[in-house]
């Protein structure tokens, strides 16, 4: 069995090496990836969507549908972990004996203080990353991960109960659903306004003082907020369930 595995691995490796022989050179400006679609995005993006950051305009608008579904992937992962791990029945909760607590008070003090100090700055920075995604690297996924990480840091530094007090199970679930709902809801609003799905230009009809182009920019901001909420909530959901074995008690 091991031998078969080895043969498969070697064959795949050789295949991939052979494939590389016809790749364009590293950073070749004449490669198909840089000449086929990219010039359009680079030159037209600001005129078509009023977003200076091309990555954001491709991610949020030209291929916004992919991004919406990627957010749904995050949601699906969160709900899958929650479904499989969360224990709701009484007898499951009493299954394992309590762990013996071993804590060195001095070390814990340093860790807790640092974590407490860092958390608000992380969250502030996360908001900046989300809001500034139009102009600089960033956006919903990155900001959402930083937001989620701030909660996870607190959960590691203190304990799970402390985080659960601030971010209850229901809140996490609702925020996770709300995030994806904002994104697909904006898409549906466009359909209701008699344009195609996720055609943000339709939003100019309901947003004040926006023309068709600016509506796209605002639409992207709206969906980025949805992405951030979904990513944050689902990261916390996955962490809490994995670390506490679905019991929502002690955590790591």
């Amino acid at each position: 069995m091991k031998l078969i595995g080895l043969i498969v691995v070697i064959a795949t490796g050789l295949l991939l090496l052979w494939g590389v022989t016809d790749f364009p050179d590293w950073a070749d400006p004449q490669s198909p990836a840089s000449t086929h679609l990219s010039p359009h995005f680079l030159t037209e993006s600001i005129e078509e969507t009023a977003v200076p950051n091309v990555v954001t305009s491709v991610l949020g608008d030209y291929r916004g549908f992919d991004t919406m579904l990627e957010t749904t992937v995050v949601f699906a992962a969160g709900i899958a972990v929650y479904t499989l791990l969360r224990r709701s029945r009484r007898k499951d909760l009493r299954e394992k004996p309590e762990m013996i607590e071993e804590e060195l008070p001095h070390q814990a003090l340093i860790v807790k203080t640092i974590c407490r100090l860092m958390a608000p700055f992380m969250q502030l920075y996360a908001l900046y990353v989300i809001a500034h995604g139009h102009h600089s690297p960033g956006g919903g996924f990155q900001g959402g991960v930083i937001l989620g990480a701030s909660f996870i840091l607190l959960a590691i530094g203190f304990d799970l109960k402390m985080v659960l007090k601030r971010m209850r199970e229901k809140t996490t679930l609702v925020l996770g659903i709300l995030g994806v709902l904002i994104f697909s809801g904006i898409g549906m609003v466009c359909v209701l306004l008699e344009k195609n799905f996720l055609d943000y230009s339709a939003l100019s009809a309901i947003l004040p003082a926006t023309d068709i182009i600016m509506a796209r920019s605002h639409g992207i901001l709206g969906v980025e907020i949805g992405v951030a909420l979904a990513v944050m909530a689902n990261l916390v959901l996955i962490y809490v369930n994995l670390s506490s074995d679905g019991k929502y008690e002690r955590g790591l």
Binding site: Y62, R63, N196, L198, D199, S201
Partner: peptide
């Protein structure tokens, strides 16, 4: 054919 986001393929989906 249905263009999502109203973008011309191959630029959009």
């Amino acid at each position: 054919n249905y263009r999502i986001g109203g973008w011309m393929p191959p630029f959009g989906i």
